[in-house]
Amino acid sequence: MTVPQGGAAATPVRAPGGAGPVVDLRAVSKVFAAAGRGAVRPVEALAGIDLAIERGEFVSLIGPSGCGKSTLLRVIGDLTPATTGTVTVNGKAADRARRDRDYGMVFQAPVLFDWRTVQKNVELPLEIIGRPRGEREARAREMLDLVELAEFTGHHPWQLSGGMQQRVAIARALALDPAILLMDEPFGALDEMTRERMNLELLRIWERTGTTVVFVTHSIPEAVFLSTRVVVMSARPGRITDVVPVDLPRSRGVETRELERYFELVTRVRESLRGGEGAAGAPARVRAEGLSA
């Protein structure tokens, strides 16, 4: 492997977060005003969310469709404001944290710019904060090395497969050495085999960079495999019904998926999801996925 030891070593100094959690949510709620005129009622997407995420943690948000897990992620990332409650990131208001570029975002789709090469896509955030060219190029190459795409710097996104594109998106998200990496179902559009490989890669990157990750998924096995904690949510309004600490060995690999404890935790999360949904009826997708695991 060509990855330099400690990929984050030659990076800009991380904003001092001091002690305390990286993300601190207190009594957060989110209500979407009724769209348009008429008798459409406002939608209560999130209610009474309290959550603290420590530095270096890998936290998954899991729940049925429409439970607000993506909204929660977007509230943390200040892409949409919370209606009530406080969102503190790195000891600052979320808005401040965004302006300080404390976030790295990865979406379900890679959202790469077609007209830029892979290298230039990773350089994009560095361009925006006005880093000199030499530094940009070096940093982008370093990040592409980290996601093992060093050979594809000159390609355009549309010449890569879906999994490779998503790896470029991860490299781009890491380019600014963010204090927190927000990932919204990043592997949801990939097939199962690629997905498992990407899971392993993500773990490796996480271990190497030591960044904090908040990861939205609807796959129970994925959540358990990756996380240090799994946050289980229920729908309408979205609330946290359970937090499952994952006490699997920190260094994980293919064999982790065969551990007794892994299965127990998967079952635990599944039951938790079922309990949280109650009689409202669980969306078939989550249930089916849970059973197939």
Partner: peptide, 26 residues
């Protein structure tokens, strides 16, 4: 972890089913 060579079987089968994007305000 191996780097997939260009034109590996990975290309073409990567993108599986696309789940609906939920809980995003209209």
């Amino acid at each position: 972890m191996e780097r997939p060579p260009a034109g590996s079987p990975e290309a073409g089968v990567e993108v599986g089913q696309v789940p609906a994007i939920d809980d995003i305000p209209g």
